[in-house]
Design a protein around this nucleic acid. Structure first.
Lengths: 195, 195
DNA sequence: GAGTTTCACATACCCCGGGTATGTGGAATT
DNA sequence: AATTCCACATACCCGGGGTATGTGAAACTC
């Protein structure tokens, strides 16, 4: 095995095992040497690749965040109408909350582990950006009333984050539909010709 | 000084210093022995009163939460109309986010330190309860469309939590008004005779 | 293709800080 | 006045993040 191959292999193994444990046990309860051992290497490898426990977490969170953003975007792009794209994206996000990797890592631990500012920057780079662009497009198209988009993005982002966490705890299948309907009503308040 | 007096005094001192440090530095970066020392006692006192570092944090968070709930309720009670009460309460909550004790302790650290379930139970006992009762009242009065209130509470609670954190970072005074207006639009979507 | 360099780790160690077990002195009880 | 009680103080343990250094095999040089 060539060196770059080996390097990539251990890096992936650490990332994978870290993701599994961070999602299951939370940042604080994960011990780095155990992650390394389960990945077939030692703690030294983890520090060589990620510099610190926080570094590994950051890499894991970034990966999960990217995947989530892609999933939401993909679901939105299956619709033609911009308003339906927004709705579909929101629903996809809510559904994604059932994945502990999303709920535990991204929504619960990341803000306090990475700090709120870095977390927000990370969120902005993926899922929040889609939300912002969708809203800006709707404002430009006159579907949503002219207004500063930034506060709106924060409100909706927070609403969905919390709702996703709530859904993750309530195994009720009907809850997802209820939350989606409630979100529809809330979003409906933004439409210009709101009925 | 009598014993119960002394007991209360050290307890209050620890609570006060802990609150200050948790708000300023975050749970992880606070070292318990330093809190105790600044409070004029030793680590032993802290363990005697609160059992663990987490115990102290729990007590601090509960206190902040209670204060916040009272503040929001007080602001709401200054209005007569139920709909205006809801708006006033929401605005008061958003404004409260500038206090690091609220933003850092309650909104950022508490969910991951106490666990999301305990955090939610705590939130429910104070601020979220007011929101639920307000919404239930409005539904009963026919102002808000008949629907499951639970998902709605989660959505709005999350929206305001995140918005409060955002406001805490943007020293802009206009931002609060923008966020309040955006919240008005979102809430407006819930009214039955929505215009 | 032997020697040299590089580098991806492994090994051994440090040390901070949460937690615990036990001591103590003064208030409360009898 | 003697005893009990209890709110702490003191001394200690130890898990786990971080670091400094060693090592062996791949990659490069001539």
């Amino acid at each position: 095995m060539t060196r770059t191959e080996q390097r990539e292999a251990t890096r992936r193994a650490l990332l994978e095992e870290g993701r599994r444990r961070f999602a299951a046990d939370g940042y604080h309860d994960v011990v780095l040497s155990e992650v390394a051992q389960a990945a077939g290497v030692t703690k030294g490898a983890a520090y060589h690749h990620f510099g610190s426990k926080l570094g590994l977490f950051r890499a894991v969170a970034a990966q999960v965040q990217e995947e989530l953003g892609a999933r939401v975007a993909a679901e939105a792009d299956r619709r033609a109408d911009p308003w339906e794209q927004l709705r579909a994206g929101c629903r996809a996000f809510l559904a994604a909350g059932t994945d502990p990797a999303v709920s535990r890592i991204l929504l619960v631990d990341a803000p306090t582990v990475l700090g709120w500012d870095e977390w927000r920057a990370m969120d902005e780079a993926s899922s929040a950006r889609h939300l912002r662009e969708a809203l800006e497009g709707l404002v430009a198209a006159g579907v949503v009333a002219e207004q500063p988009v930034e506060p709106l993005v924060r409100l909706l982002s927070g609403a969905m984050n919390e709702a996703a966490l709530w859904l993750a705890r309530t195994a009720d299948a009907a809850a997802l539909e209820q939350a989606a309907l409630a979100l529809d009503r809330v979003l409906g308040g933004l439409r210009t010709g709101a009925a």
